[in-house]
Every structure is written in structure tokens, then in C-alpha cells.
Simulated scan of single mutants.
Amino acid sequence: MLQSFYLILCILGFVLPYSQFVPFLLEHGLDIKLFFEQLFANRISGFFGMDVAVSSLVLWTFVFWEGTRLKMRYLWVYVVCNLLVGVSFGLPLFLLIRQRQVEQQTD
């Protein structure tokens, strides 16, 4: 049940951010300067940009701490997923695989 919930969150965490990013790419290409200009265009968007940056650092710490404790492999994958999509994808993906690991260890 919990694994299904995490899987749904993974899908949403991938689809929803890219529903906003793909049109930007199609219109502007990979214009990093414009991306950051728009990300910090005002205080509200800057608030969300900073929130995501801090959340990403927290995620990376959690992934390496908890993943090492549970002897999970390929921990770098979750950081890459976070960098390519965001916390909205990297965190539920890590929690999904973590839950599988926990359930295997308790069987």
C-alpha cells in the first residue's frame, strides 16, 4: 500500500514539474541565464527557488545517511533524479526504494 502511494507520488513528481519545464525548453532552449532570471523574478518565485534548494540539500543528506544505514546501493541515482527533475521526484523515489529495502530486511 505504502509502495503504491510512493509510486504515484513519483509519477506526479516527474510529470507535474516537467509539464512546466518542457514548454520553457521548447520556447527558449536550455537558456540557463533566462531560467535563473525567471526563477528569481520576484520574491515569491525566489521563495520557492530557495525552498527547493534547501530541500534538495536535506534530501541528499537523508539519502546518504539513511541509505548507508540500510545498506542501500546506487545512492547517487536519487541525487541525479533530484538534479534532473527535483525534490518532487527524488524524494518519493528514494522513499519507494527505501520501503522495499525495509520490507525485505524484515521478512
Results as ranks from 00 to 15, higher is better:
35 F>I: 07
75 L>Q: 05
73 R>L: 08
79 V>R: 10
94 F>K: 02
80 V>D: 04
29 G>S: 05
82 N>F: 05
72 M>T: 03
49 G>I: 06
48 F>Q: 00
92 P>R: 09
102 V>G: 12
96 L>N: 06
21 F>G: 00
21 F>I: 00
41 A>L: 14
59 L>C: 09
81 C>R: 09
17 P>I: 06
87 V>S: 01
20 Q>S: 14
3 Q>A: 08
75 L>N: 04
9 L>N: 11
6 Y>W: 03
71 K>C: 05
50 M>T: 15
66 E>T: 01
2 L>N: 02
4 S>T: 00
8 I>F: 12
76 W>F: 11
41 A>K: 11
42 N>T: 02
91 L>N: 01
102 V>P: 08
72 M>Y: 07
85 V>P: 09
83 L>V: 09
88 S>P: 10
18 Y>M: 12
34 L>D: 05
19 S>C: 05
52 V>P: 00
33 K>Q: 14
14 F>Q: 14
55 S>I: 10
82 N>V: 00
31 D>Q: 09
53 A>Q: 00
19 S>A: 12
73 R>N: 04
26 L>T: 14
15 V>H: 07
62 F>N: 10
55 S>A: 14
49 G>M: 09
69 R>D: 09
107 D>A: 11
49 G>D: 01
69 R>G: 06
26 L>F: 08
35 F>Y: 15
61 T>W: 15
26 L>N: 15
21 F>P: 03
57 L>S: 02
58 V>L: 14
65 W>F: 14
42 N>C: 08
32 I>R: 10
93 L>C: 06
84 L>Y: 02
81 C>W: 05
47 F>W: 02
2 L>F: 01
48 F>N: 01
88 S>T: 15
95 L>Q: 08
3 Q>C: 03
23 P>Q: 11
96 L>C: 00
80 V>N: 04
49 G>L: 12
5 F>E: 04
98 R>T: 00
66 E>P: 01
10 C>N: 13
101 Q>L: 06
28 H>A: 14
75 L>R: 05
41 A>T: 01
75 L>V: 06
91 L>A: 09
100 R>N: 06
77 V>W: 05
15 V>C: 08
43 R>Y: 11
98 R>M: 01
72 M>H: 04
42 N>I: 03
12 L>M: 11
101 Q>R: 10
103 E>N: 13
107 D>W: 03
11 I>H: 08
98 R>N: 02
106 T>D: 08
90 G>S: 12
74 Y>D: 06
18 Y>V: 01
47 F>Q: 00
2 L>C: 02
49 G>N: 00
8 I>C: 11
75 L>D: 03
49 G>A: 09
27 E>R: 15
37 E>V: 08
45 S>D: 07
80 V>I: 12
30 L>S: 13
79 V>N: 07
66 E>D: 13
12 L>A: 15
27 E>N: 15
93 L>Q: 05
76 W>D: 05
53 A>T: 05
22 V>S: 13
69 R>P: 07
82 N>C: 06
12 L>V: 14
95 L>E: 07
